[in-house]
Amino acid sequence: MQTWFITGTSSGFGRSLTEQLLRRGDRVAATLRRPAALDDLRAEHGDRLWVARLDVTDAAEVRRVIDAAVAELGTLDVVVNNAGYGLFCSVEEASDEQVRRVVDTNLVGSMQVIRAVLPHLRAQGRGHILQVSTAGGQTTYPNFSYYHASKWGIEGFCQTVAAEVAPFGIAVTIVEPGATATGFGDGLDTAPPMPEYEATPAGEVRRALASNAFPLPNDPEKIVRAMLDVVEREHPPLRLPLGVDTADHVRAALQARLAEHDAERATALWVAIHPGGPEDDQPTAAAR
């Protein structure tokens, strides 16, 4: 029996993961903004489900809840950073408050959970952190700029953390689900649309989402099962891409970035310090 700590368990992957873990006999420390949402699971599974209210944007509360979970449960084997906030609008349309909320929840909140749990995992000499990101942590779509900013940021953070904590027996895996029918789209925050963007890619994606034409090709239950499976691997990957769109879109984005990177190789090397001075007076000449 393992003990899991999961944020954002009221719905979506967090709720499904909690249900599957309890069914197989594990213990779950489930955190969410509205604890009553898990009353049905508490009635069914008793003390194998530990529930606490948690707003991940409150750093002091994050530390307090994690310390309480360890004190009561004794250990945490797997920590799942799943709580998130989705903002769907063009760059100009978002309010300052919306920008702050997406960064505070998806980036800073996830960072604070990891910071608070690491002393406990270090002390026990083991543990696995699953950071729920998205295909949008490696590629981008119009109207999701601030969401992408938070996810690209947390992926860079987690990649660094993984290298730092590996000597302590702690693994880190960034989970990258593609578009999936979890209800996340129904909870997206939006802003008043600007007519200037109607005839742009932002307008096209807005209309596709409004008409339910935005594809959701992935099975949420299989995604959760893949998350359960990766924890059992002897050598879990740093990134776990999950979904048809993740496989295709992220691969295409990485290939395009690599091609552009290689195309600028001559310029990149031109700026290096050469003992005898620059090889050429103009970077554009070096790149031709």
Rank of each mutant, 00 (worst) to 15 (best):
Gln2Ser: 11
Gln2Lys: 07
Gln2Cys: 02
Thr3Cys: 10
Thr3Trp: 02
Thr3Phe: 01
Thr3Ala: 08
Trp4Ser: 04
Trp4Glu: 11
Trp4Phe: 10
Phe5Leu: 15
Phe5Arg: 04
Ile6Lys: 04
Ile6Trp: 03
Gly8Phe: 01
Gly8Asn: 05
Ser10Glu: 02
Ser10Val: 08
Ser10Asp: 09
Ser10Cys: 04
Ser10Ala: 06
Ser10Tyr: 02
Gly12Asp: 10
Gly12Leu: 02
Gly12Trp: 00
Gly14Asn: 02
Gly14Pro: 12
Gly14His: 01
Gly14Glu: 05
Arg15Tyr: 12
Arg15Glu: 10
Arg15Ile: 06
Arg15His: 09
Leu17Pro: 11
Leu17Thr: 12
Leu17Gly: 10
Leu17Arg: 01
Thr18Val: 09
Thr18Trp: 01
Glu19Ala: 01
Glu19Arg: 00
Glu19Trp: 02
Glu19Pro: 08
Leu21Thr: 13
Leu21Gln: 15
Leu21Ile: 13
Leu21Arg: 15
Leu22Tyr: 02
Leu22Phe: 00
Leu22Gln: 07
Arg23Thr: 14
Arg23Gly: 05
Arg23Phe: 07
Arg23Tyr: 01
Arg23Ser: 08
Arg23Ala: 12
Arg24Gly: 11
Arg24His: 05
Arg24Lys: 14
Arg24Tyr: 06
Arg24Cys: 08
Arg24Thr: 15
Gly25Pro: 14
Gly25Cys: 13
Arg27His: 14
Arg27Asp: 12
Arg27Thr: 15
Val28Cys: 05
Val28Glu: 10
Ala29Thr: 13
Ala29Ser: 10
Ala30Lys: 08
Ala30Thr: 14
Thr31Cys: 10
Leu32Ala: 10
Leu32Pro: 09
Arg34Asp: 14
Arg34Ala: 09
Pro35His: 11
Ala36Pro: 04
Ala36Trp: 05
Ala36Asn: 13
Ala36Gly: 12
Ala36Leu: 06
Ala36His: 09
Ala37Arg: 08
Ala37Gly: 11
Leu38Gly: 07
Asp39Ile: 09
Asp39Arg: 08
Asp39Phe: 05
Asp40Thr: 07
Asp40Glu: 12
Leu41Arg: 03
Leu41Trp: 05
Arg42Ser: 15
Arg42Cys: 14
Arg42Phe: 02
Arg42Asn: 09
Arg42Val: 15
Ala43Asp: 15
Glu44Tyr: 03
Glu44Phe: 03
Glu44Pro: 15
